[in-house]
Amino acid sequence: MLCLLALGLSACGSKFRTYNGPEVTQVIVDKSDRRMYLLHHSEVLKSYDIGLGFAPEGHKQFEGDGKTPEGLYFIDRRNPNSKFHLSIGIDYPNERDIAEALAMGKSPGGDIFIHGGPPKGSKADPRSDWTWGCIAVTNREMEHIYAMVDDGTPILIQP
């Protein structure tokens, strides 16, 4: 009996959640309002306050510019061992992003994710603009997003 209780309590503390609701068919990020929406077709399933790159205005042009990309991308990977709790990857840069950065003689960068809050010990507010171009939410919110959003889901990032 004690073992079952311990097993049950340890499951409650897991960062891996399950989701059995409607499929998330699209993610929309509104940079100007600092909001992210998980949609099932036209129905908003969940919405979140977000933090962006430390220089949030405009489209990401090259590595290190602190901007969050704008445009249509896809969720393409997940990282259960992220230093930002959990993370799901965005397939930035696309061919256009690469060409534009190379035309400026720069690297487009990469590793753009939706992820949890700042690492332990950081004083950054998870919803402030503190990332290098990623989209940040709280750790608890990231647990739900990680469970809800599948690889291949389109993400539209709007100015």
Rank of each mutant, 00 (worst) to 15 (best):
M1K: 13
C3Y: 12
C3V: 14
L5W: 09
L7C: 05
L7A: 14
G8Q: 07
G8V: 04
L9V: 07
C12M: 13
G13W: 14
G13Y: 13
S14R: 12
S14F: 10
N20R: 15
G21Y: 08
V24F: 01
V24H: 03
T25Y: 07
Q26W: 07
Q26P: 07
I28V: 12
D30I: 03
D30S: 14
R34H: 15
R35M: 12
R35H: 10
L38T: 04
L39S: 04
H40A: 14
H40W: 09
H41P: 12
H41I: 13
S42Q: 12
E43H: 15
E43W: 11
V44Y: 04
V44S: 11
V44L: 08
K46L: 11
Y48W: 03
D49R: 15
I50Q: 00
G51P: 05
G51W: 00
P56T: 03
P56E: 02
E57H: 13
E57A: 15
E57T: 13
H59E: 11
H59G: 11
K60R: 12
Q61E: 13
F62W: 14
E63K: 12
E63G: 06
D65Y: 10
D65S: 05
G66P: 03
K67P: 00
K67G: 06
E70K: 02
E70M: 06
L72H: 11
Y73E: 02
Y73H: 06
I75D: 01
D76W: 09
D76A: 05
R77H: 13
R78D: 07
N79Q: 10
P80C: 01
N81W: 14
N81L: 04
N81D: 13
K83M: 12
F84W: 06
F84R: 00
H85R: 11
L86A: 01
S87W: 00
I88N: 00
G89Y: 03
G89R: 02
G89F: 03
I90G: 01
Y92D: 01
Y92H: 08
P93G: 04
E95L: 09
R96C: 04
I98A: 11
A99Q: 02
A99N: 08
A101S: 12
A101F: 10
M104T: 07
M104E: 14
G105S: 04
K106N: 05
P108F: 02
P108N: 05
G110K: 06
D111H: 12
D111F: 14
D111S: 13
I112W: 00
H115V: 01
H115K: 11
G117F: 01
P119R: 04
K120N: 15
K123R: 15
K123C: 12
A124I: 09
P126Y: 03
P126Q: 07
W130I: 10
T131E: 06
C134H: 00
I135R: 00
A136P: 02
V137P: 00
T138I: 06
N139A: 05
N139R: 06
M142E: 02
H144M: 10
H144Q: 06
Y146R: 10
Y146I: 09
A147F: 05
A147M: 06
V149M: 02
D150R: 13
D151F: 06
G152L: 04
P154D: 06
P154S: 08
I157S: 00
Q158D: 11
